[in-house]
């Protein structure tokens, strides 16, 4: 009941009324084959849901009623009903789905299938596969432009961000970035696309109109060898001022001035930090630590880690309900 209230759009009101805002985060545990449910008022795991093999990409449906989780080794995306926290359906993705994204209306889903160099298009209402787009080798990162017109897919061995027109489903541009691009994210005002390169060790800033790399964020942590700095997940505040970048086995999240593209500081988190999501009020950022089996909670304004929550084995993806 409590959860239901939250998910039906009362979140903003609650956040204003109660000092300890309560949201629900879902974390996919890659090795544990489970999804951990975290209550952000108590910062505790309230439920562990058994899912298919190798859960990674995870996202709320736009209406907040479902959580969708890609279970790569079962070649499908499972649908969790957030009222009952039970799996109620599965979606026809291609082989080995990893990351996916949805359009703003929550009608169409785009899935990166690592194994066959394709992006699969799924009609979420009919829960049916309606098309495939051929991309580079090992598609991974997926995001959609704020206006919904351009879909981005990154391919890990081709080392490109592919720009796909969502109306025609044709590739309109390919931008070469550094090695093993894993994650892509638009600024909320669409002015920039950020692409993290895990092996290259950089985040490329791409001009989405000119299709050009206009800058690169590099990282330098004293006492840490360069190879250990492997950027993956990216989170940006809605005002476009601050970004957080997970640096994998460097065990740190970089706080970046999103305007000047300069690193402000590094926050020490758990081991092999992967992905992240903000609470809807943007007070907190939750990041998954793959090797240490926990989630770090970052106070966004203070730029400090305030809490660590133990979850399942090898946590990977995370999603928090939007109001």
């Amino acid at each position: 009941m409590w959860r239901q209230v939250l998910l039906t759009g009362m979140v903003a009101w609650l956040a204003a009324a109660a000092p300890a805002s309560a949201y629900v985060a879902y974390v996919s545990n890659e090795k544990g084959n489970t999804v951990s449910v975290i209550d952000t008022s108590s910062w505790t795991v309230t439920k562990t849901i058994k899912v298919g093999q190798r859960p990674r990409g995870i996202e709320f449906s736009r209406d907040g009623k479902f959580v969708m989780v890609a279970v790569g080794d079962d070649d499908t995306i499972q649908v969790i009903d957030t009222k009952t926290n039970e799996i109620v359906d599965s979606l026809p993705s291609g082989p080995d789905p990893e990351l996916f994204t949805q359009d703003a209306a929550g009608k169409t889903m785009y899935v990166a299938n690592e194994n066959d160099n394709t992006v699969t298009v799924i009609d979420l209402e009919k829960r049916a596969r309606i098309g495939d787009i051929q991309v580079g080798v090992e598609p991974e990162g997926m995001t959609i432009s704020p206006d919904g017109k351009i879909l981005i897919n990154t391919s890990e061995t081709t080392n490109m961000a592919h720009f796909i027109d969502t109306a025609t489903r044709q590739i309109v541009a390919n931008v070469l970035v550094d090695s093993r691009p894993r994650f892509a994210q638009f600024k909320h005002d669409s002015s920039e696309l950020w692409v993290s390169s895990e092996i290259g060790g950089t985040v490329s800033i791409v001009d989405p109109v000119k299709h050009e790399v206009t800058g690169k964020i590099t990282f330098d942590i004293p006492g840490l060898r360069k190879e250990a700095i492997q950027p993956v997940g990216i989170g940006m505040t809605k005002d476009g001022k601050t970004a957080f970048i997970a640096l994998g086995p460097a065990n740190r999240v970089a706080v970046v001035d999103a305007v000047s593209h300069k690193v402000i500081k590094y926050l020490l988190v758990g081991q092999r930090v992967w992905h992240m999501d903000f609470t809807p009020d943007e007070k907190y950022l939750l990041v998954t630590n793959g090797v240490s089996n926990d989630v770090s909670v970052i106070d966004v304004a203070a730029q400090k880690v305030i809490k660590t929550i133990q979850v399942g084995e090898l946590p990977w993806g995370i999603t928090i309900a939007q109001p």
Binding site: Q170, I171, V172, A173, N174, V175, L176, V206, H211, E212, V213
Partner: peptide
């Protein structure tokens, strides 16, 4: 044809 017409390699700007 559409590929050739639309490919842009960012780094080289060619």
């Amino acid at each position: 044809r559409w590929l050739i017409g639309t490919i842009a390699l960012s780094l080289m700007a060619t």
